[in-house]
Write a protein that binds this DNA or RNA. Sequence first.
DNA 1: AAAATAGTGTCTTTAAGACATTATCCC
DNA 2: GGGATAATGTCTTAAAGACACTATTTT
Lengths: 232, 232
Amino acid sequence: MKTLDTAAAPAIATVDLILFALGEAGLEVLLIRRGAAPFLDAWALPGGWIHTDEDADLDAAAHRILREKTGVATPYIEQLQTVGNATRDPRGWSLSVAYVALIGPGQAPAVRGGNAADAAWRPVETVLAEAGDLAFDHGDLLGLALARVRRKVEYSTLPVHLLPERFTLSELQSVYERVLGRRLDKSAFRKRMAEVDFVEPVPGEMRRGSNRPAQIYRLKEARSTAFFDRVL
Amino acid sequence: MKTLDTAAAPAIATVDLILFALGEAGLEVLLIRRGAAPFLDAWALPGGWIHTDEDADLDAAAHRILREKTGVATPYIEQLQTVGNATRDPRGWSLSVAYVALIGPGQAPAVRGGNAADAAWRPVETVLAEAGDLAFDHGDLLGLALARVRRKVEYSTLPVHLLPERFTLSELQSVYERVLGRRLDKSAFRKRMAEVDFVEPVPGEMRRGSNRPAQIYRLKEARSTAFFDRVL
DNA sequence: AAAATAGTGTCTTTAAGACATTATCCC
DNA sequence: GGGATAATGTCTTAAAGACACTATTTT
C-alpha cells in the first residue's frame, strides 16, 4: 500500500499477502515497516495496489506484489479472503484481497526490499499477541490466515510447501507436528501419506547421518495439494 | 452490474451472488436477465456495484444487492472467492467478489425484481451444461460455488439452510441426499447429527402424516454451521 | 390389520492409535 | 557393538456401515 500512487484509474484495490515460513520458533510471518502515511513506521503485511495496466489477473497481481516487496518469486499461494469496509483505511472505503503464501527454507530471503531495517520475519504467536500494533486491520488478516493454515494442515498436504523441494518423510512429519503443536504417530502418518499418493521417492537419493539413511521424497508433479478423507 | 453507474468515486468493484435453493430438480440457482450492455438480454448472476456511501462493509453490500435484485432479505451467506482480470468484462479490468447464499423454500420469491421475465430459478446442472451462455464469467463462478457447496456439505451442517426453520430429521437427511446425489444410512446420519449438536427438538411439535409422527427440529441458536470430524 | 415412515439397536467390518520390532547406517 | 533414526509390523480398541427390528400413526 502506497500513498504516492496518483494514477487514479489503474489502481483498483489492494492485495495483501500473509507470507509464512517455518523458523526456529515455528511458523513465522514476514512483516514490512511502512515508509509512508497512514501508519508511518508501523509494521504491516506486504501489500500493494492492483495495477490494471500490468497485472493480467488477481493472482498475477499477488505474485508481482510479493516479488516486488519481498523478492520471493515462486511460492505456493492461495487466495484467503477479501475484506472491505469504510473504517480499515483512514483515507476512506478500502478493499483488499488477502492471499496466503508459503515458502520453504532457502526460498526465504533473510531480509529484502531495500534496507535491512524495513522487513523482518516474526513468530506468528508473538505478532498475534500484539496484533493491534500492526497497520490497518492486518492483525485480523494474520489471524484469519493462521486459522486457515492450521485448519487446512489437518486435512491436506499443505505443509509440503514449507519444505524444500526434496525432503524425507520424517522431515515432513516434523513440519506437521510443528504447525499443529502436537506429536503424530509415525506409522499412522506414513499410511496416510501413502494413501493420498502425492509424494514419490527420488530413486537412489538418501539423506545420510549417523544413522540409517532416509529415503528422499519429492512432490509428485501436478499435485500441489491433496486432501485427506479424514482429519489427522 | 449496471452500465449507467456514472458516479465514479463511490463505485469500487462488483459483488456477484450465487443464490441456491432446493427445487424439484435438486439444487437450483437464481438467474437474472440483463437489461443493459454488455451482455444485454443474457442471463447472469444477480450482482451490483459496491456503494461506498451506503455499504458499511462487503457483507453489507452483498446483503443490499441481494435484497435489491431478488427481494431475499435474510439468507445464509458466505464469501466464496474474488475474481479479477482484464478480460472478464469487455469494458476493462474488472474485480468481483462472489458470494454464495442459501435459502429455504418459502423465503424464495418465485420471481422478483420487476417483471416476471427477468428472473428465473434454474437447475444447476442445466445451467452448467450451457455455462458459456451466461454473462461475463458467471458460468465459472457458478461452477466454483457449486463445488464449494458440494464439498462443504460433506463435512458440515450447511444443508440446514436449504430448509425452512422447522424440519424433521428425515427431511434434513433428504436434503443431504439430494445435494450429494447418493443415499445415506439413517442411523449413521442421526448419530452424526447428535454428535455435532447443532439442532434441537421443538418440544411437542410433530410432523403428522399417514404414519408415525416425526419430531420437529430447529437450528440451535448461535450455531449457524457446525463441522464434522470426518467426512460423510 | 395393513401401510408407511420414525426411531433405535445389533452385528460385522474397517480403520485408527499405541506400541513393538526390525533395518541400516555411522562411529 | 552401541547409538541413532528409518521403516514396517502387530495388537488392541474404537468407530463406521450395513442391516434388522421395534414404534406409532393413519386408513
